[in-house]
Amino acid sequence: METVELNNGIFMPMIGYGTYRTVPAMTTANVLQALRTGYRLIDTAQYYGNEAEVGEALTESGLPRDQVFVTTKVQTSGYAETKRGLDESLRRFNHDYFDLVIIHWPTGNDAETYRALEDAYRDGKVRALGLSNFNARQVQAIIDGATVMPALDQIETHLNWQQKRMHAYLTSRGMVHESYAPLGEGQPGFLDNPVLVKVAQRYHKTPAQVTLRFLIQEGIVVIPKTLNRQHMADNFAIADFALEPADVRTLEGLDARQSIDGWPAAMQEDQY
């Protein structure tokens, strides 16, 4: 399994399983299937309402806790609310720590929210800290006040919006770029682009597999979500090929800097 080293020396898998919009009643079975398929990175969030079920799947899998990297995201604002909310997340998750905790999106009090995460990090409740939906200016504000460096920024990234500008910024700060919506969240026609289909045919792979391979080769962590078992297996089975430089350049040409839904507006490149 390909991994990336975070800026505090811990390693994170480069392909994971996302649980956005997976209702709690379906989460345990699907996360358990993902773990049995071989995924070792699971992404959840307070906002998703399925932290407990992710914890149940991890317990039911029988895997040692230190073999699965679990991310959650706080949607709180300020020190006290974040500290309390993270402790509640840990109780729901029913394990001793999260591997990565992310501020889900910027709020009015990010400095104090992040300070609560730093204290949780020092208390051993969290192994690494990160951000999501933060543009370069917002990331830098956190860095400037941090005592624990953020390790990662999770942002919308896919072939139609490759986030070259943010990628360069994050790399320059020693941070990992993580993609959410790497397969376009099921948008009609997203994986039917003739250019992508032609490249996929050349490698005898699906368009989704080629898309994920492209992002990983760019050094971007991916967390595709699916409830389809065949797609789940296919998405994971991308370690047996590499895209040739000419095909990488071809896929780079699909970058339209186009968001799926334009949220949050602060991520648009004219905002930072």
Rank of each mutant, 00 (worst) to 15 (best):
L251K: 00
H204M: 14
T113F: 07
D247L: 12
K198W: 03
I143Q: 09
D99H: 11
T3A: 06
P64A: 03
F11L: 06
I155G: 08
L41E: 08
T59K: 15
Y39P: 10
E185W: 09
L254V: 13
D66K: 12
G130W: 07
T206H: 00
Q33N: 15
E178W: 03
V248C: 07
P224N: 07
G253K: 09
M232F: 08
Q271N: 15
L243R: 01
T113Q: 10
A128R: 03
V54R: 12
A181H: 03
E269M: 11
E244G: 10
Q230C: 05
Q46R: 11
N7F: 01
T19K: 11
G49W: 04
T19D: 10
S61K: 08
T28Q: 11
G219S: 06
H104D: 14
Q46L: 04
A45T: 11
D66H: 13
L159I: 01
R36H: 10
L191M: 06
I238R: 01
R40F: 12
Q268E: 13
A57Y: 09
E60Y: 04
T157K: 00
R91A: 15
V222R: 04
F190P: 00
L117C: 06
E112R: 08
W263K: 13
I216S: 02
A246G: 10
Y48K: 13
L129N: 07
G189K: 03
P150C: 10
V176D: 04
F11W: 05
S132G: 05
L86F: 10
V4I: 15
D66Q: 14
E53F: 05
R115F: 10
D261I: 03
I42M: 12
A111R: 11
W161Y: 10
K205Q: 03
A146W: 05
F241N: 09
A120M: 11
S179M: 12
R229A: 12
H231C: 00
V197Y: 02
Y203F: 11
H158A: 03
D87C: 06
F134S: 05
I142K: 02
V199H: 06
I15P: 04
P224M: 09
Y17M: 09
L58D: 07
G219R: 02
R21M: 15
G85W: 08
G174L: 13
G9Q: 09
K125W: 05
P182D: 00
T19S: 13
F214V: 05
